[in-house]
Design a protein around this nucleic acid. Structure first.
Lengths: 193, 193
DNA sequence: CACCTTGTATACCGATTGGTATAATAGCTT
DNA sequence: AAGCTATTATACCAATCGGTATACAAGGTG
């Protein structure tokens, strides 16, 4: 494995487990089996390393979400595809997913928050557009597109977090199709059906 | 204001803005207008200070939630009361609410996560019980009580976070009754009504 | 061969980290 | 007044923080 890649993976693992500020550069390079100048050669600074971790992984998630949204369809279909894409990504990149969320909830004056906020904002706008583009529902929604988007994304994160609650190391998280369907169905039709 | 209280408030403000690990003890005592031994006299250690912040505030939230749940009623009524209590607390104690969430999403090997996890778990179980105690719905739910609870809490957090997105300092956040009703209504009946 | 770029390690920097030993206040009780 | 307890400040600690100056390999190119 490439040294650069080793740094990225080791750093993500440590950041995810103990937080960005609690992990020192020394510990990263020790566990990656290299020395400090190598890290600073590739990433310039600790926050440069953070930025690269966020950039490279979030780019994958954005791509998956854009795919799920691009194909036209009724709201339920699109939402199901988005949920599927979201759960798949989170399951396959659990450490990053958790770390991204942790940075989003971190303090506003944090490097991590400032870097992650525009990303989450972008995903959010993607979901808002699903409801806005759905012309036949406009009468029903009456400006509640944003409320729907907020609820929907909150539900996805909440369920994904619960799934990952007692995850063993190195085991991939799988949200089943059945469960995904139930979650989206409940969002669409409530709890009385 | 009491020195002890000044430490607690200053620490919460700083932790909330920049995170537990990024804030040094020195900065806390400087902004609180005291010196280090005073802090260590009251709280023993930095993590002791963290524990006290979490304990004292979460105790208030738990009390509010238990009140909301205690009064019997149909599921919609209880859920509305819980949402109202949750939003009220988060609005009045925004810094703590945000900090608590940030610790919940922080790495599993963190002091903060270990301290906050049982608290969130308790709130979660309170909500699960709402659905379990609702006998007349048992046929409908078929073991989906947990799914409902996860969705419901995810929705509350998601909306509260969005409300606090562009909060000015020292301004209290208010989730209106109308908005609260819409959110709970959507949870109960979906988006087509 | 000489030269240049890429990548890596040794050894160090000043600043800050969480935490403490010691002692001086202050107020209350006897 | 004497003594006790609760608080607070000065001054310090070893360890770690993020970051760097310097040099040494290795590989391709003239």
């Amino acid at each position: 494995m490439d040294n650069r890649e080793a740094i990225l993976q080791t750093a993500l693992k440590l950041f995810c487990a103990r937080g960005y500020d609690a992990v020192g550069v020394q510990e990263i390079v020790d566990q990656a089996g290299i020395t400090k100048p190598t890290l600073y050669y590739y990433f310039g600074s600790k926050s440069g390393l953070l930025a690269e971790i966020l950039r490279s992984n979030s780019e994958i998630l954005e791509e998956r979400l854009r795919e799920a949204v691009r194909i036209p369809g009724q709201v339920p279909e699109v939402l199901y595809r988005v949920a599927r894409a979201y759960f798949d990504f989170a399951g396959a990149h659990w450490q990053f997913y958790l770390f991204m969320l942790s940075q989003f909830y971190a303090g506003r004056e944090t490097e991590g928050f400032r870097a992650v906020y525009p990303l989450i904002q972008k995903y959010y706008e993607l979901v808002v557009r699903i409801f806005e583009d759905s012309a036949e529902m406009l009468g029903n929604m009456r400006g509640r597109q944003e409320q729907f988007a907020i609820s929907f994304m909150g539900i996805l994160d909440s369920h994904m977090m619960m799934l990952g609650r007692d995850r063993k190391e190195d085991s991939m998280l799988v949200m089943t199709d059945e469960k995904t369907y139930e979650i989206v169905h409940q969002f669409l039709h409530g709890i009385y059906s």
